[in-house]
Simulated assay, not measured.
Amino acid sequence: MRDDEDRRRPVIHEIGQALDALSLDDLDRRIALLHAEIERLEAARKAKQAALGAADAFFRR
C-alpha cells in the first residue's frame, strides 16, 4: 500500500530544503524532476531569445 501512496503523491522540491530525511529513491526522483525543470526553462529561454531576435531583425529594417 505504501508504494501506491508514493505513486500518487506528487514530487515537490523546495530549493534549500533539508535533504537528510530523504531516501535514495526520493533524491533520484527530485534530481529527475529538477533536470526536467531545467530543460523546460532552457526551452523557454531559447524561445524568448528567438522572439527577441526576430523582433530586433524586424525593427532594424
Results as ranks from 00 to 15, higher is better:
residue 28 D to I: 15
residue 40 R to Y: 03
residue 49 Q to G: 12
residue 45 R to V: 13
residue 45 R to S: 10
residue 49 Q to I: 00
residue 43 A to C: 04
residue 30 R to C: 11
residue 52 L to Q: 08
residue 21 A to W: 08
residue 7 R to H: 00
residue 10 P to I: 07
residue 51 A to C: 08
residue 3 D to H: 05
residue 4 D to C: 05
residue 13 H to P: 01
residue 41 L to C: 02
residue 46 K to H: 09
residue 45 R to H: 08
residue 47 A to Y: 03
residue 24 L to E: 06
residue 25 D to S: 04
residue 11 V to L: 07
residue 1 M to C: 09
residue 54 A to D: 06
residue 47 A to C: 02
residue 6 D to H: 02
residue 16 G to H: 02
residue 50 A to V: 03
residue 27 L to N: 05
residue 8 R to A: 13
residue 32 A to R: 07
residue 7 R to M: 03
residue 34 L to V: 04
residue 31 I to H: 09
residue 55 A to E: 15
residue 48 K to Y: 02
residue 56 D to Y: 15
residue 56 D to P: 06
residue 28 D to Q: 15
residue 22 L to R: 02
residue 34 L to K: 10
residue 40 R to P: 02
residue 1 M to Y: 13
residue 56 D to K: 14
residue 21 A to Q: 12
residue 29 R to T: 02
residue 42 E to Y: 07
residue 24 L to R: 07
residue 54 A to V: 07
residue 45 R to F: 04
residue 40 R to S: 08
residue 57 A to P: 00
residue 32 A to Q: 11
residue 51 A to D: 08
residue 31 I to L: 15
residue 39 E to P: 01
residue 16 G to M: 01
residue 58 F to R: 14
residue 17 Q to H: 06
residue 40 R to N: 01
residue 6 D to T: 09
residue 28 D to C: 11
residue 42 E to S: 09
residue 13 H to S: 07
residue 53 G to V: 13
residue 37 E to M: 04
residue 41 L to N: 01
residue 43 A to H: 08
residue 38 I to G: 00
residue 20 D to T: 05
residue 8 R to K: 10
residue 36 A to G: 14
residue 18 A to E: 04
residue 2 R to H: 12
residue 15 I to D: 00
residue 60 R to N: 05
residue 35 H to Y: 13
residue 61 R to F: 15
residue 19 L to Q: 11
residue 27 L to A: 01
residue 4 D to H: 11
residue 5 E to P: 00
residue 5 E to S: 10
residue 57 A to N: 08
residue 48 K to I: 05
residue 30 R to G: 06
residue 58 F to T: 12
residue 8 R to C: 02
residue 54 A to W: 07
residue 3 D to T: 14
residue 59 F to H: 05
residue 27 L to I: 11
residue 58 F to H: 10
residue 3 D to F: 10
residue 40 R to I: 15
residue 61 R to P: 02
residue 15 I to S: 02
residue 59 F to S: 13
residue 23 S to N: 01
residue 16 G to D: 00
residue 4 D to E: 10
residue 25 D to Q: 11
residue 20 D to V: 09
residue 57 A to W: 12
residue 22 L to D: 04
residue 18 A to S: 14
residue 59 F to W: 15
residue 4 D to F: 14
residue 33 L to A: 03
residue 18 A to M: 09
residue 19 L to M: 11
residue 26 D to G: 04
residue 23 S to V: 02
residue 22 L to P: 00
residue 15 I to T: 04
residue 27 L to Q: 07
residue 56 D to E: 14
residue 59 F to I: 07
residue 46 K to P: 03
residue 5 E to F: 14
residue 21 A to S: 14
residue 8 R to W: 02
residue 42 E to K: 09
residue 8 R to D: 10
residue 26 D to C: 05
